[in-house]
Amino acid sequence: MTDCLAITNLSATLPDGQRLLRSVNVNVAPGEVRALVGESGAGKSMLSKAVLGVLPVSVKIVEGDIWLQGNDLGRLTAAKRRQAVAASIALIPQDPLTALNPSRRIGPQMTDRLVKILGWDQTRADERVRTLLDEVHIRDGERVLRAYPHELSGGMRQRVLIAAAFAAEPKLIIADEPTTALDVTVQKQILRLIAEMQRLHGTAILFVTHDLGVVAKISQNVTILYGGMVVEEGAVDQLFANPQHPYTRALLAATPRYTDPEASLLPVDQSVLSDLAKAVETADRDWMSSHGG
């Protein structure tokens, strides 16, 4: 079966030649929930931006391919690429407030993508959005459609964006830290909702997060990034029960658990970090020499 998303050997650099992504391989199978985990600067947002084709202008993809539904995005013209991405990927952003236009009502913001980009007629789009608000358990959908973003709570706004993401039946949803800005109780509701919608629609999700707790609950498979490199990947059960890479073990040991407050909290060992820095250096040297740099 073709992967929904296949990122192969992807490297991206800044103008000075510094690599931000270092030969990254990530595959997302149809219907799979894969977590993309890393601390700040690990390249997790950079990777999702590369897939969406919204990298900052200074960052160039210098090697590797992104395959979406069996199409090599690098071989498409810019316009075709936008079409392919719009047709099969949707984004659940981190901050639901900045993702919504404050001066427009929710309804038109939700149907815009369907009408203006995918060419649906307005009536069909309206109906679709109503069905989806129902699916995300918004009871007074009519009021929400007429509301402005500031009139809704943070959890409600995130529900609206989840509904909008699923509206066009995308094959893949990139969820970029969708619960980081929320309180824990709301976070649990939203994670539950994402899981429920995912099962209902069979959509693959690339779930970007830094929170290992969230990873353990939502995903089937995990890719751990450090310094733009894949450090470890595997099924969630195995990775948490038996982490192979010292960095993964260190991250788990650094996470406090309320169930086990006496366990010694181990700051990530400097030797682990210096080994990683060396690995990054070696990878860059090999890469430079094989690319005539």
């Binding site: 824990v184 109780t185 994670l191 929170d211 290992l212 707790g213 969230v214 353990a216 609950k217 996470t255």
Partner: peptide
């Protein structure tokens, strides 16, 4: 409910 909502870094399909 606050305590129950904390996602522990342990896989648990029933949590959601």
């Amino acid at each position: 409910s606050l305590i129950d909502a904390i996602p522990l870094p342990e896989p648990d399909p029933l949590w959601l």
